[in-house]
Design a protein around this nucleic acid. Sequence first.
DNA 1: TCAAAAGTGTTGGGCATACACCCATGA
DNA 2: TCATGGGTGTATGCCCAACACTTTTGA
Lengths: 229, 229
Amino acid sequence: MAHAYEFARPALTVDIVVFALDEEDLQVMLIERDLKPFEGQWALPGGFVRVDETLEEAARRELEEETGLKDIYLEQLYTFGDIKRDPRERVVTVTYYALVNLEGHDVQASTDARNAAWFSMNDLPKLAFDHKTILRAAHERLRGKVRYQPIGFELLPEKFTLRQMQHLYEVILDRELDKRNFRKKVLGMEIVKETKEIEKDVAHRAARLYRFDKRRYDKLTKQGFNFEI
Amino acid sequence: MAHAYEFARPALTVDIVVFALDEEDLQVMLIERDLKPFEGQWALPGGFVRVDETLEEAARRELEEETGLKDIYLEQLYTFGDIKRDPRERVVTVTYYALVNLEGHDVQASTDARNAAWFSMNDLPKLAFDHKTILRAAHERLRGKVRYQPIGFELLPEKFTLRQMQHLYEVILDRELDKRNFRKKVLGMEIVKETKEIEKDVAHRAARLYRFDKRRYDKLTKQGFNFEI
DNA sequence: TCAAAAGTGTTGGGCATACACCCATGA
DNA sequence: TCATGGGTGTATGCCCAACACTTTTGA
C-alpha cells in the first residue's frame, strides 16, 4: 500500500443537521455564512476536523461553538465526497444529525458573531454547498428511523402529552394518525409512564403528562420486542 | 471559518466489506497484508482516497485492484474516525459494503501480489486495525436492510430457486423460515418471475428457476408498496 | 423402490384500521 | 354555556404463523 503522503489529501469536515419540533412543524438550525464562498447564504453548522479529535467530537465541538447546543442526541448520517462540492478545494464531509427539544436547550443565536436561526423544513432558504442534499438525506433518515427506534423522544420535552407525541409522529411521517389507535398502541407497548402531572395554562381540559420509560424500553428490547409506530 | 491548511489533516481511506453466499453460509473477502503494521494479518480491501476521485470511485478502484471484482452492488456503510485506529497516523476511513454472487464474478486471488480469499462469517481470522468492528457493522446493516429492500438478490445468481432465496434469508437473518409461508409471501408480492428452466444435475426433483423482476418491483414501490420479508 | 427435496392449503388468533361520542376545563 | 381538546371501545378484515402430506426425479 502506498504511503499517504505520496498523494494530495482531501480535507475533512463535519456538518450537522439539527432538528427540533415546535407547535407547527419540524425545524432545522442554520448558520448565516460570513465568509466566501456563499457569503451571506445559510448553511449547516460544521467545520474542519482536527487531527486530535474523533469525528463525533468534532461535530459536538462545532455545534457548541456555532450554536451553543450541547449534550444532545447525535448520530452519524452519511459521508459526502463529491469532487466539486466545495468550490475552493476538495472537501469530504462526514455529516451528523442531531435532535433537540426546544424546552430543554437554549440556543445562543451565536457565539462567534455569526447568525444562527431555526427554519421550518417547509420553508427553507437557499442553502450553501450541497447542504440541501444533506438536509434531504437527514430528513429521510429521521423518517425511517423514528418508526422503529424511540429517538422521537429526543425531540420532546421530558414530560409530554400523548397528543404532543402523536403530533411529533404526524409531522415527521407527514400523515395523520388516528388518536385512539395511537394511544392504544403507545400505551400498550408500555414504553411511556404516566406522571401525576397535567398540562398547565390551557383553555380546555388539561392533558396528562407522560415520560419515556427508557428502563422499560431497554428491557423489552432485550426480550426481542420490536418498537414500531 | 479557519482555513483548512492551518490544521494538520487526517488521512482518508476507504475500506470495503464484500459479502457473498455459498451453499453453507455468508462469506466475506479478505486480503492478507504484506506490509507493516499488521503484516501477515488479514484485513478488508481498501486504501487511500485520491484527491481527484469520489469516495465510491475510490472504493471501486481499490476493490478492482485488490480483488479483481468490478461492477458490483456497493453501498456506503459508516465512517470510522477513532484517533488511534491506525497506529501510524490519524486515518479516517469511509467504509462500504458490497454484495456479489459467486457465479457471476471471478475473483482473481490478487492482482498486486497480495493474497485475497473468502472467509466464512462463522470462522473469521484475526483482523487488522478495527476491521472486526467494521465487519460487525456491515453484517448488522445487511441484516437490517435485507428485510425491507430487495438487495438480497445481489447475492444470488441471475436465475435461482426459491429454496436458494429462502436459504439466503435464513443465513442472513440467522433463523429458520417456513417454506410454505416464504413461498406464499414471495410469490404473492410478484417480485420474482418464473422462468421456463429448472435446476440441473440434482439427485432429486429439480426445482423451478426464478429471476428477480426489477421492473415490477420499481412499479410496485412507486405505488407505495412495501417489500418486507 | 428408495431417498431427497419440490411443491401445495387451511385454520385460528392477533393486530391494525375505521369510526363517534361524552367529559372536563377555562374563558 | 360554550368552545376546545381530552379521553374512551368495538367490530371488521387482513395478515401472519403454525402445521403435514403428496409428487417428482435420479440413483
